[in-house]
Amino acid sequence: MPISPNQGSSGGGTLVTITGTNLTGTSAVRFGTRSATNVTNVSPTTVTAVSPSGSGSVGVTVTTPGGTSNPIPFYYVGAPFKQTLSPTSGSTAGGTTVTITGTGFSSATSVAFGANTVAPTVVSDSQLTAVAPAGAAGSVGVSVTTAGGTNNGLSYTYVAVPTVTSVVPDEGPVSGGTSVTVTGTGLTSTSQVTFDGNPAPFTVISDTALSAVTPPGAAGLVDVVVTNDAGSATATDAFTYLAGPGI
């Protein structure tokens, strides 16, 4: 006599389906010593019921006018507990693999990023991974659903790939040291600014502007690249290094 699902929340409330024979006239379904609710005799071979609260492993029995069945195992599962999420941000296009650690993940069936849900990969009872779906820029709550229930409390930030619209001033000496303002979009989470591949110190002013100081470089036009958690934007030939006079 199988039961499906064979596990559920320790708080109760799991709708289970029990199949077997001679189930007509079922008067009670018990999980251990506790009675189930909403017992429905669907057919002579099927009964549904809602589990009461409980813990650990219990035997489920069905009682009919003919007697009480042998017990079949049902496992109570506690609600999941999340501790960490890494990385905590990624592209609005989705595709970032996120690792979540905590407890009670063995029966995880879904991970929600805001309103969007994905199927996780369970690594162990204390760890799972999920590929973030696409989402709008900003922070969303992350929740994990298992047979024991749903838990949330962590957040994930969607970041748009940056754009660069201008670099002002657009020229300076090869010795570096020119203070420039880079404008564009998605600049809040900027992690690096380079001139011809050389990192430049920078300060984020807003999501649409940052200031940077040019590093030394070779004379000529160079690309300016801004990188954030979602990707990079290249402003081709956006800055000109000027050679000093010679006499």
Score class of each variant (00 low, 15 high):
P2G: 05
Q7I: 00
S10Q: 12
G13C: 06
G13I: 06
L15E: 11
V16S: 08
T17D: 00
I18L: 15
G25D: 08
A28F: 01
A28D: 12
R30D: 05
G32V: 13
T33C: 06
S35P: 12
S35M: 11
N41F: 10
S43Y: 06
P44E: 07
T45Q: 13
T46M: 14
V47D: 00
T48L: 12
T48V: 14
V50M: 13
V50N: 13
S53V: 00
S57G: 14
G59L: 12
G59A: 10
V60S: 08
T61H: 02
T63L: 01
P65V: 03
G66K: 03
N70S: 15
I72N: 06
I72M: 13
V77P: 01
A79D: 03
P80H: 02
Q83S: 15
S86Y: 13
S89L: 11
G90E: 03
G90N: 06
S91W: 02
G94A: 02
V98T: 08
T101F: 02
T101K: 10
S107W: 06
A112Y: 04
F113L: 03
G114E: 02
N116C: 01
T117G: 05
P120I: 00
P120W: 05
Q127Y: 09
T129F: 07
A134M: 09
G135M: 04
G135S: 03
A137V: 07
A137L: 05
V142W: 14
V144F: 05
T145C: 13
T145K: 12
T146L: 11
T146M: 11
T146C: 11
G149T: 12
G153Q: 12
T157K: 10
V159Y: 09
V159I: 15
V164Q: 04
P169W: 01
E171S: 10
S175E: 11
G184I: 07
T185S: 15
T188V: 10
Q192T: 14
V193D: 09
V193S: 11
T194N: 09
D196H: 11
P199N: 09
F202L: 11
T203V: 14
D207S: 07
T208P: 01
A209M: 10
S211R: 13
S211L: 01
A212R: 07
T214K: 10
P215F: 03
A218H: 01
V224S: 03
N228R: 01
D229F: 09
A230K: 03
G231K: 03
S232F: 08
A235D: 04
A235N: 07
D237Q: 11
F239A: 03
Y241Q: 02
L242I: 14
A243M: 09
A243K: 00
